[in-house]
Design a protein around this nucleic acid. Sequence first.
RNA 1: CGGAGCGUGGCGCAGCUUGGUAGCGCGCAUCGUUCGGGACGAUGAGGUCGCCGGUUCAAAUCCGGCCGCUCCGACCA
Length: 422
Amino acid sequence: MRRSQIFLRTRKEAPADEEAKNAQLLIRAGYIHKEMAGVYDYLPLGLITLGKIMDIIRQVMNEIGGQELFLSALQPKENWARSGRWHDDVIDVWFKTRTHGGQGFHMGPELGLSNTHEEAITAIMKNFVHSYKDLPVYAYQFQTKFRNEPRSKSGLLRCREFIMKDLYSFSRNDQEHQEFYEKVQAAYFKIFERLGLGKETYLTFASGGSFSQFSHEFQTITDVGEDTLLVHESKKLAINKEIYSGKVLKELQISKEELIEKKGVEVGNIFPLGTRFSEPLGLNYTDEAGKLRPVIMGCYGIGPGRVMGTIVEHFADDKGLVWPENVAPFRVYLARLGNSKTVVQAADEAYALLTQNAIGVLYDDRSVRPGEMFADADLLGLPKRVVISERTLQNSSFELKSRESDDTQLIKLDQLVQALGD
RNA sequence: CGGAGCGUGGCGCAGCUUGGUAGCGCGCAUCGUUCGGGACGAUGAGGUCGCCGGUUCAAAUCCGGCCGCUCCGACCA
């Protein structure tokens, strides 16, 4: 992509209405735009980045047998009435067309904007699951969730409208469910590893609801995190402070002295649902003996936008964003200094060559001064910076620099692809 | 939902105490000089001063109400 063509403008100054580092930098770098509190638009660069994160998640979900679908954001009342979750007393973050007899849309039935999809997916599965032969089924989606948080904050970390990957498992029995549950657990570690957060992300024991003792959160250690964790570093796990007790310690065979208190961001969550939804909504199957049984369910979430914000919080420095290779919107920032014929030609060729070799490159072909290009390259946070100028061409070379280091090196032009490829 | 702060061209801010032609920097446009870490000069475009109401000859400024944003707390299916 040529910088002169991409829809992008960077800013020197941070917006006044953002305090969170992730929001300030992502806005300054032109990745996102704030629509209102807790609601952000993804601009071209931001969408590419978000897409990279989603692709990593998607790939691993497919590997464990997940099938992608896309459910609606508009939710009818009926399914939620059946599960007992339509009432504002049960879920108070709903955006609904009518609440407490107030005004809603001027026509049509009472509707809600999806804040989660257990009801919807369970109702759908009634059309497809009748026999033990139809199970297990694993379905997931990337969909927008709407939650009217009483206080959204911290940029992308706590939004009122956000995309979530939510996977739902439908199993015949507890054992089959448990096997998959553990598979997802391993898959999540793989995902966070690929996203660059592996080292700081802990499997965290949290409140399990009515069908199991625990649910499991994936918490990434960050100062701006909302959750307080007691981390066991060598065992690579943590306990959410909300469930911390002597009994829990005993259960997990951990002693108090081994734990360190830290702040974390919940980047993922896996949750056994038992028959919480299959029973009220009537999702049953006939087993081998002809007996009708409720389907055992689980749900498994990751918030790609929240992950993006967490990555920013974790890696960014005082000059701007720093993306791990796997999620960077482009691998290379190609800065062309000067616009003499030879420089333009060499840079154009480099751009074409990298593109042909499927190396993502943002080509700064503008006629701006070097300082501005360097500042932009730092702000945008692409892993590699390549400079082509009169000076480098005198050595038939380009200059290569990594975002996280100050060292530069001159490399011969014919080594371009080797130096930047995998 | 409680507490604190804020709202003035696209962005960052001053002006408000003491009412009287709406200003600065960045960015943007044109021209010239520059060109390896956010250059300089000249000219120019761009603003319902969050919204509604009140006081006044006159309101960005004073008064009342509302809306929005940030942070702390409560909440977080």
